[in-house]
Design a protein around this nucleic acid. Structure first.
Lengths: 326, 326
DNA sequence: ACGCTCAACTGGCACGCGTAAGTGAATCGA
DNA sequence: TCGATTCACTTACGCGTGCCAGTTGAGCGT
């Protein structure tokens, strides 16, 4: 099924078909002809060849999402689904590529589909970004900084999460701890969140947060808990990187025969299904992933349309889900 | 950067460049010329245009993964990453599209990138599959059946999971319950797993499993637990659809002042991070997602190479992670 | 009756690539 | 010395589009 078939069926030329189906303005084509073409296209079930269109126009209707080597869990999964929806509304197909472990050259990936835009979770170096632009990819954005440095400001800000955690704990607690994830790749996320905690502590005249790396097992987490409880002055409230880490802290407490929030208050991030099911139910910070997805998609679509987009992060309403652990 | 540039740089024709770079056999091209072409390509940083190649050959080097509307959690996330790796080793780019909620016609998706193969998690109807094949997509496979029916046998079998759960519980327990997920879309997975449990119960002369839908909150789960404990004969061991549901059962028990495995033994599936951190730590079934990913990729690659592939499911070693809950 | 305008189309090129068919020079057997 | 063969290439086509630059013919003023 090519546009030539449609042209024959409608009794017009290929050019006319192209004009009608693409809705090209400033071409005087009467309604009757338009209808003939539309009918013919529908009758034949015509769908244009993406490859040919991509070759001609230099880009496809695809937005490529680039995932780093992070675990794909609850929130990230939801974000992917919501980004898919948000882009679909703009007529764009959002697909995700998880960076392979023996990392293939990134170039192979985007060359393989010449996307209209690339939206990466983690920033890449300028050389790569420039190469993409040179290859006709118009929009290249990153949601978070890279481990290497921070060339562009991130599109999604993490500090407010840590700040909200800290502000919630700060009322009854005078010394906070930070439960840092045991996965090096997550620094890009954990760093800024910790910064948010730090800033609030400084603001409120509290001592520096006591940062400890917490592995995802009860015994290992118990070590961290012992460290916090034995600190001087002792830590009484923990901001955890996310709910999994928070659950580990809870398990560590349990391991020592202790309990939140009596011995140590704990607050997580993400509200994974297990959070409300924990003992005690976990207080946690939820972000509005749908708003983030829409915001990101809007930025990309605007940018594709030639509009200037603001440099600040997208709007991201945080919600504190208050339960029992803090 | 086109192959014409490389040709000019190397002082040969475009055809020669194409022959050299694609390693076309039966073309007598001396080593010196080959080297000249390779050098020129490297010097110019040439990478072929996927669009043009796709237009010419009729297909790209992309494998499209189609996700249904399921939550993307731990295992599914890992599977995606491992599939990406497995396909990368075969020189194929694996990208994932999560089906948008106001479901766009599937056709738009694969037309947008003419993948070499489509690997869906959930089966789609034959009309769609046939349309894909007609569009030049050579391999169309589905990992699980569709809600509508079961035209093709699934590539990944779920029954053994339920069977392993049931066999593990069957030793001390004479009546089993099944904790069914509260998300209708998961029937495709939950149904076969439940079948596995049923089969083992029948085999061992035990009564039918008592199936109850378990919502992901403590109060709701407590209702299910009450039902099980009050059944006649009473249920003493629960096979949960996955770890999240199992955690809910645990929380339901806790809500009633009860405890696993004393009052009710519970076994999950997936070994999510929260499983080992639960109270008590959750006994669970782990599948070897890496083997599954490799198996699936192998099938697809073989099939692309024209080889006949077996109809049976891919190999999938199950492991029982024994903890305290059962 | 003749030029002019303008609506309504159409012919044809280029995008970058793979590849079938062709070409000129070198080599070779008789 | 001459046709035949082999080598090492090159020329040229078409994949399906988008869109520029025409072309046709009807309507209109003079």
């Amino acid at each position: 099924m090519t546009s030539a078939d449609v042209a024959r069926e409608a009794g017009v030329s290929r050019a006319t078909v192209s004009y009608v189906l693409n809705g090209v303005p400033h071409q005087k084509i009467p309604e009757t002809t338009r209808q003939r073409v539309w009918d013919a296209a529908a009758r034949l079930g015509y769908a244009p060849s993406a490859a040919a269109r991509a070759l001609r126009t230099g880009r496809s209707e695809i937005v490529l999402g680039l995932l780093p080597d992070w675990p794909i869990e609850h929130v990230l999964g939801r974000l992917i689904q919501q980004l898919t929806n948000a882009f679909a509304e703009a007529g764009l197909t959002f697909v995700v590529h998880s960076s392979a472990h023996p990392a293939r050259p990134l170039r192979d990936i985007w060359k393989a589909m010449t996307p209209a835009a690339v939206l990466a979770l983690q920033d890449f170096d300028d050389v790569e970004a420039e190469a993409m632009r040179a290859a006709g990819i118009e929009v290249v954005m990153a949601m978070h900084g890279s481990p290497g440095g921070e060339p562009r400001p991130p599109l999604v800000s993490e500090q407010p999460i840590g700040a909200l955690q800290a502000r919630h704990l700060a009322a009854p607690h005078r010394r906070l701890g930070y439960a840092y994830p045991d996965l090096p790749g997550l620094d890009v996320l954990a760093g800024p969140r910790l910064e948010g905690v730090r800033a609030v502590c400084a603001d409120l005249g509290m001592p520096e947060p006591d940062v400890r790396t917490v592995p995802l097992d009860a015994a290992g987490a118990a070590e961290a808990v012992k460290g916090w409880l034995g600190a001087d002055p002792p830590v009484t409230g923990i901001c955890a990187f996310n709910d999994n880490v928070a659950l580990a802290v809870l398990a560590g407490l349990s391991h020592l025969g202790l309990r939140a929030p009596r011995d140590l208050a704990v607050i997580g991030v993400d509200d994974i299904p297990g959070a409300s099911l924990a003992q005690p139910p976990l207080t946690t910070v939820v972000r509005d992933t749908d708003a983030i997805a829409r915001g990101l998609a809007r930025r990309v679509v605007d940018s594709l349309g030639g509009k200037e987009t603001p440099a600040e992060p997208v709007r991201d309403d945080l919600l504190l889900r208050f339960r029992e652990s803090a």
